[in-house]
Amino acid sequence: MATSTHPDDRLYTSDHEWVKIEDDTARVGITEFAQEQLGDIVYIELPDEGASLSAGEPFGEVESVKSVSELFMPGDGVVVEVNTALEETPDLINSDPYGEGWIARIKFSDLALDELLDTPAYCELCEA
């Protein structure tokens, strides 16, 4: 896995999700590594807008032909927007996991900053 594929403008979880903080909300998605492991994504279960969820709680599912993965909240927060484009074209996550394939925008009230990984630390995790 080439390190350059993970942008350095965001943070990562050890569960292969990314969090990109933009002002007072943050976009979340899954990483290049995660989408490659899953393969062709054909189905996504998005959270409800307005849902208030705690850290570690599942907030959605990403499903490929062969397997399914739950998405876990990287912190406490409220879902302010979901990427509805994924309902029709979930494979945006395959083609552009860090851009068009974002999953939800969340207003975090708490984020375990010390547990999130920066880009070099995440690259190290993927290569381990």
């Binding site: 979880t13 569960d15 292969h16 999700e17 899954i30 995660a34 492991q37 899953l38 990403v62 062969k66 397997s67 399914v68 993965s69 739950e70 998405l71 876990f72």
Partner: peptide, 8 residues
């Protein structure tokens, strides 16, 4: 993210 697979 945690994956389960049923590759058989």
């Amino acid at each position: 993210m945690s994956a389960t697979t049923d590759a058989g």
